[in-house]
Design a protein around this nucleic acid. Structure first.
Lengths: 329, 329
DNA sequence: GGTTATACTGCAAGCGGTTGCTGCAACCGC
DNA sequence: GCGGTTGCAGCAACCGCTTGCAGTATAACC
């Protein structure tokens, strides 16, 4: 089977303790001895057993990341960033995709918690009155939802959303629509609120549709509602919905950017590639992922930190060609 | 801290062995005792410690899944399927995203192998002459690349690709192009070969471009090459590239489906949503994921199976509106 | 040279479960 | 009534590694 610490010890004519220390607490061992141990261990292909180490150390060096849906382009950047950052700190990331099933979040999180040192939960949809139970799985850091008493990394979407509304207003649009995202989505609450506030401030007529699932198909549906209401500016909950809107508009002979302006949120890779290219609010998922890992490790490693620290990242509008001046009727 | 087996044993007035058996080898314990133990364990909120169990059992109940790029829409379905299937068998899935860095595959796989019972490697780009080293990390199952002497789940793309070529031929296209995918991609070799064979069989003029990275941007670039050559039918390595081609064609005033027909591969969710909707070769990634788990577990659990079994799944063309009859000049 | 500080290294006891073997008691049949 | 099964539960060793404490050799000091 595999080479164990004892094997290395035997080969080196030392005790297991010394070998152990030589490999993980270098300063406690004579330099010469250490080098010899390291060489022998390498030659024998020794690889420490994770389970054994976890058992004594009381930690697994695993961190859990839960996302609603890997297929949603908003999450891969977060996942990648979490993995990258985790790896830098010697942590492996366990990913759970709950497939948008809100009710699965808590049980999945509980299960996962048993195998990991801490949890990062992205865009949790769990209702407010049950968040305590997620919180109880501490250490846990939330991404994309501010939770009282818990550490979180949120993106200040208000800024970007306000920019989106201002952009439409500047282009002369008077009647705009906001397409709501999933019912339980904390992000949606934020985005919607910002749009409402900005619209009111700028004196625009705002109509809301939805809630919609974060899928292209939802946008296809929404597009018809928008056309029916004679609206000229649309801000969708996310890029997927926006893309659906654009596809449907084109299908119905309505020119996106000319007849109706469409804005998405997430600035996913597709937005730059759609036709027309999609104006979108950039949400720095990758940065959020890194920050989340840092926050989590800070808690796990018990560096004197508040465990309810809130990191806030900025969003901003990226203007492309799905938005254009309102037709002067 | 957490409730341990010893705690439960003490509370039940039994020895640890009995509790252990009551919980994991029910038949070796008196029914009455078992029920009592189960009740007490439940009441105390006992949860067996993963590391400890792994240590004695010699297995982690973790399986590793390596993919080139989570953000590539081809992989999420595979990931989801692997997770779902794994969960059904009490396995947790560890995911590694190598970010398309071929050189990272082997080291990442090696690292991951230490923590898991077996590996599923999707679309490995590692060159043939180094595949032995991946193979040496057995048990390992490859997805989307047939490897001699190793278990693998591949999708017979030849069928779908041939259908794609036939489709173009039936529509009257005589000069077609194939846009190659990444250099090291085994899939590309398969797809390309099938296109070549079918083109030759049907007497079409085939031009090849690439290799290209599997990104929308690649397609944008490729589109110009295609236009310059007066080609009317394009088969791209994957949907992303195809979407890029379409976007660029539209941008240049060329009508996809009318002037130039475009076919993608993967049948990703976006293909149904692009405008025009993208004709694409459906590749059953989800089924491949499930099959891979089954194959891996068969090897791990040592059910008398060849460990170089090849599962082959079929692909098929989904016709949408990005393809249409060739203009009769 | 004797003594104490210093620097390593080894011993052994766990970490939380699993499991082969032993022990014991109730039960069986003759 | 006795030997022989059979069914359960407990003992103890072990999985591979970490770590507090003790032991020893060497260095440093007076």
């Amino acid at each position: 089977m595999a080479v164990t610490l004892a094997d290395v010890a035997a080969a080196a004519g030392l005790s297991g303790s010394t070998v152990s220390r030589a490999l993980s607490a270098p300063e406690k061992v004579n330099a010469t001895t250490r080098e010899r141990v390291e060489r022998i261990a390498r030659e024998m292909g020794y690889v420490p057993n994770h389970s054994a180490r976890s058992l004594t150390a009381g930690r697994t060096d695993l961190i859990g990341l839960m996302v609603p849906d890997i297929a949603n382009p908003f999450f891969p950047p977060i996942i990648k960033a979490v993995q990258a950052r985790g790896m830098q700190h010697g942590r492996t990331v366990l990913i759970a995709d709950v497939d948008e099933r809100t009710a699965d979040e808590l049980p999945r999180a509980r299960t996962m918690r048993r195998q990991v040192d801490g949890l990062i939960i992205a865009s949790p949809r769990t209702p407010d009155d049950m968040m305590d139970e997620l919180l109880a799985l501490a250490p846990v850091v939330f991404v994309n939802r501010a939770v009282p008493g818990a550490a979180s990394v949120v993106i200040d979407e208000a800024g970007g959303m306000a920019q989106a509304v201002e952009h439409l207003a500047a282009l002369g649009h008077r009647a705009i629509a906001y397409l709501n995202g999933p019912k339980r989505s904390w992000s949606n609450t934020q985005r919607r609120g910002a749009v409402q506030a900005a619209s009111a401030r700028l004196g625009l007529d705002l109509v809301e549709f939805g809630p919609f699932e974060a899928q292209v198909q939802s946008g296809v549906h929404a597009a018809d509602l928008v056309i029916a209401r004679g609206i000229t500016g649309v801000i969708a909950y996310d890029d997927l919905i926006a893309l659906g809107v654009m596809a449907r508009l084109t299908e119905r002979g309505v020119r996106t950017g000319a007849d109706i302006s469409v804005i998405g949120v997430d600035d996913s890779p597709m937005s730059a590639m759609a036709y027309p290219t999609l104006t979108s609010v950039h949400v720095p998922g990758d940065a959020a992922g890194s920050e989340a890992v840092d926050a989590l490790l800070a808690i796990i490693e018990d560096r004197q930190v508040e465990d309810d620290e809130h990191v806030v990242l900025d969003s901003r509008l990226i203007v492309r060609s799905s938005t254009g001046p309102a037709r002067t009727a």
